[in-house]
Amino acid sequence: MAPKFKVPKLEANSFKGWTFVLVAGVVLAVVALFAQGSLSGVTNSTGCVMAVQGTAPLDVYRNPGTELGPVETLRPGQKVDAQRGAIQNGFRQLVGDQRWAINERLAATSGSTC
Rank of each mutant, 00 (worst) to 15 (best):
L28R: 09
V7T: 15
C48K: 10
L33Y: 08
V95Y: 03
V60C: 11
P57H: 07
A56R: 15
E72Q: 09
V95L: 11
A2Y: 07
S14V: 00
T73D: 04
A107E: 03
T19Y: 06
I87H: 05
Q93H: 05
E67S: 15
E11M: 05
R84W: 04
G85A: 10
E67N: 14
L94N: 07
P76Y: 07
V95M: 09
N13H: 14
Q78L: 02
M50R: 06
E67V: 13
S110D: 08
A2G: 14
P3D: 03
E72I: 04
Q88G: 08
V30Q: 11
A51N: 03
T73N: 12
L74N: 05
N63I: 06
A101M: 02
V26Q: 05
C114N: 09
Q88S: 15
D97W: 10
L58P: 03
G37M: 08
N103E: 08
G25I: 04
G41T: 09
G37S: 13
T109D: 00
S40Y: 06
V52Y: 00
V23I: 14
A2M: 13
L33Q: 12
P8V: 04
V49S: 03
V30R: 12
C114L: 09
T113M: 12
G37I: 02
R62E: 09
K4M: 08
G47E: 01
V26P: 06
S38L: 11
N103L: 01
L68T: 14
G69D: 00
I102W: 00
P64S: 08
C114Q: 06
G65A: 06
V49H: 01
D97S: 12
L39Y: 09
D81Y: 01
R99D: 00
S110Q: 14
N103C: 03
V31P: 05
T19A: 10
P70G: 05
M50Y: 01
A12S: 13
Q83K: 15
V71F: 04
R84I: 15
K79W: 00
T66L: 08
A32I: 06
T46E: 04
T43G: 12
R105I: 03
P57S: 09
A35P: 04
V23C: 08
S38V: 14
Q78I: 03
V26T: 13
T43A: 15
E67A: 15
G37Q: 11
N89H: 08
V71G: 09
C48Y: 03
E72A: 03
N63K: 15
G77I: 02
V42W: 02
F15C: 08
V42M: 04
V71W: 01
A35E: 06
V7C: 07
G47I: 07
E11F: 00
K9S: 13
L39Q: 12
V7W: 05
F91Y: 12
A86H: 02
L58I: 02
A51K: 14
S14M: 00
I87P: 02
I102Q: 11
G54Y: 01
V71R: 13
Q83S: 10
V60S: 08
W18D: 13
A51C: 02
N103I: 01
G96I: 08
Q88I: 11
N63Q: 14
V31R: 15
F5Q: 14
K9V: 11
Q36A: 15
A56L: 10
Y61H: 12
